[in-house]
Design a protein around this nucleic acid. Structure first.
Lengths: 187, 187
DNA sequence: GAGGAATGCGGACCATTGGTCCGGATAATG
DNA sequence: CATTATCCGGACCAATGGTCCGCATTCCTC
């Protein structure tokens, strides 16, 4: 693999930053990739060459935002990492997810909307789902773990998060998620 | 209110039937309203005049399919109606919803996709959500009932349903939903 | 059954937008 | 500075949700 050319790197960052800005400005409203390109001071072709499609752009942005969490989950010895008791791993993970969703509502919404076709194809979703499935299977072997994992991830649906946070902020989201998870996992 | 003209009624039915056919044929793939109009033997304008938008079409179709359930839930003295114990009302309702979702996977998926903008605007969703919220509040007053109701409805996400049913059929869906609900409601 | 008003029809038309393409520009290399 | 591989940009394309209006159909009244 040859090194990324300087202009390519510069443009990639410009596009990502422009997307963030537009997400912040437009909130849940949809915006076109023309706008992204214009904001980034770049041609439309560049956006598509880099990210392949609208979906690719948001997937990459989400992956970037989720990187820290992914690392925390994979590092042994930490509160969320392998070795910790599964129950607290799961609750902790959901808490972090709530934090992440709260700080990136617009991104979450855009990402879902764009991945509606087959969300199971998105790497980040798949990773989260796999993680939760394993934990649920360990804690409540009597449940359909895969199904329960999807159900838990559904709690972070962009519209739902926005709706809940509009009246109660991140605090309410975090508490509601936790209560539901506790109820589901049993004592 | 003046009576619906004969040709209007005929065309409305033709469009609904055409939509059903296309849903059955195309499955989860998206199809255009041009196709619907062509299949119905009708002009595109007719489709839009009747239903207002793509969303309106699927909303009306869903409402039609959900009519029987809505009636069951509202009729006192029946298993799901007012007067029955809340817990069995809730579990029964979810069971019926699973049945409905299983028989209309493509419609559920299309409906969600189209209502992604603001699903809380869809009358059917709102009705279901209200019903569940009331029941949850009665059974588990300690939970955030509105949030829990959204979470329960998320179990019928079109893609999730399709995924679960692909390996286990309606039976697995029904069982998984029930297990999760039981776990959530407590003993 | 005839006449006229009200309503509905249909498909040409529009605007938006995701995605493609290629001639020209730019950056790495030596 | 020359060479070459890579990248850029915006014109272009196709699909599609939605609009519009001249014409046809239906319905009501007499």
């Amino acid at each position: 693999m040859v090194r990324e050319r300087a202009d390519a790197a510069r443009n990639r960052l410009a596009v990502l930053r422009a997307t963030e800005e537009l997400l912040a400005e437009h909130g849940p409203e949809r915006f076109s990739l023309d706008q992204v390109a214009a904001r980034a001071g770049v041609g439309k072709g560049t956006v598509f060459r880099r990210f392949g499609s609208r979906a690719g752009l948001f997937q990459e942005l989400l992956a970037e935002r989720a990187a820290r969490l992914a690392e925390a989950v994979a590092t042994p010895g930490t509160a969320l990492g392998p070795g910790a008791p599964p129950r607290s791993r799961l609750l902790g993970f959901l808490g972090e997810l709530a934090e992440l969703a709260g700080r990136n509502v617009a991104l979450f919404a855009a990402h879902e909307r764009v991945c509606a076709e087959d969300r199971y194809a998105d790497p980040t979703y798949v990773r989260w789902h796999g993680h939760l499935t394993a934990l649920v299977a360990e804690i409540r072997p009597d449940l359909d773990a895969g199904f329960a994992a999807h159900a838990l991830l559904a709690l972070f649906d962009g519209d739902l998060v926005r709706h809940v946070m509009a009246d109660g902020g991140v605090e309410r989201l975090r508490r509601s998620v936790r209560d539901l998870a506790v109820a589901l996992l049993g004592p």
